[in-house]
């Protein structure tokens, strides 16, 4: 193993945090849809691909980068809403298995259509502010990575404001807690479902666009990002927005460290092993035997 100094570790952590920001955004999208509708949306990764693809396309058409960014997010939001109306609304009361399969089907369709439109050759998007990388305590960080973290922070702030401070956010949260009760209060679960898809599409698109300059943009980039988003969401508990963010950042750092310290080939596998560890831990948490053991313990004491 090479001899790493503080700068190298800082480097791993910082680049891990920036990749983790992407996972956090994807995970947030998953958590929002899951809390509001109960659907495990396996098509979430495709929004990142669409966001990146449309941004590249608009940029190629000659739109300035910020405009291409905005236009892409809007288009992806519309696509997310369209998907909700076409595939989720007709089957609101279907079984979870049915709903999961539908989202798998949707992701295949999106990927296939993207292949038809954009082909298999990867595209690239320029960095938002090109220039030499920055150095910080011996760690080298590209400017785009700062953009990623900055944009993620901004999006999180906006999301927090939307969920906590606006009436719409309250309605959304009410729906996440109890659909029936929310509908008594005049909140329409159908509309909230639509809103949740719009929001997560936006989050996914933003994630895809900010990471695009660092990776190549191709029709199948969404699959892995979506899966990583899932791992992050599950680490965070699947229903908690702060949990999703922490899960995403944690996953990014773990990956970056293991790529640096173990092998970059195993990086992806480690992310999924992390999922197993989390599931194991959560399962133990609810193990009845453990619970009864604890209870017996307290009975002895009390």
């Amino acid at each position: 193993m090479p001899d790493y100094g503080f700068g190298d570790y800082l480097q791993f952590v910082l680049s891990g945090l920036s990749t983790g920001s992407i996972y956090a955004l994807v995970a947030l999208g998953i958590v929002i849809i899951y809390s509001v509708t109960g659907i495990i949306n396996l098509a979430q990764g495709e929004y990142t691909m669409l966001g990146a693809m449309f941004a590249v396309t608009f940029y190629k058409w000659g739109l300035p980068l910020p405009l291409a960014f905005a236009a892409s997010v809007i288009v992806v939001i519309l696509i997310g809403m369209l998907i909700e109306r076409l595939t989720v609304k007709p089957v609101r009361s279907a079984s979870p298995v049915t709903l999961i399969i539908i989202t798998v089907g949707v992701s295949i369709i999106i990927r296939g259509v993207a292949l038809l439109i954009w082909g298999a050759t990867p595209y690239s998007l320029p960095e938002f502010t090109p220039g030499a990388p920055l150095t910080l305590f011996g760690a080298i960080l590209s400017r785009q990575r700062l953009w990623i973290m900055g944009v993620t922070a901004l999006v999180l702030a906006l999301l927090y404001y939307l969920l906590e401070r606006t009436l719409l956010g309250k309605a959304l949260r009410a729906c996440a807690i109890n659909q029936t009760a929310a509908s008594f209060m005049g909140v329409s679960p159908g509309q909230m479902s639509l809103l949740s898809f719009a929001l997560s599409a936006a989050l996914g698109a933003v994630a895809g666009i900010v990471i695009a300059p660092l990776t190549l943009v191709s029709y199948n980039m969404g699959l892995m990002l979506g899966l990583k988003g899932f791992v992050a969401a599950v680490i965070g508990g699947l229903v908690s927005a702060p949990g999703a963010v922490i899960g995403g950042l944690l996953l990014g750092v773990i990956e970056s460290l293991s790529a640096g310290l173990i092998s970059s080939g195993m990086k992806d596998a480690i992310a999924f092993l992390a999922l197993f560890v989390v599931l194991l831990w959560r399962a133990e948490e609810v193990t009845p035997r453990l619970r009864s053991l604890l209870r017996r313990q307290s009975e002895v004491e009390g």
């Binding site: 595939t87 089957v91 279907a94 089907g105 295949i108 369709i109 296939g112 292949l115 298999a120």
Partner: peptide, 18 residues
């Protein structure tokens, strides 16, 4: 290519499930 055929799977899957 072979990859395009997966679109058809996707459509079939969604339609059947709905």
């Amino acid at each position: 290519s072979g990859e395009h055929t997966v679109i058809v799977y996707g459509v079939i899957l969604v339609l059947i499930m709905i």
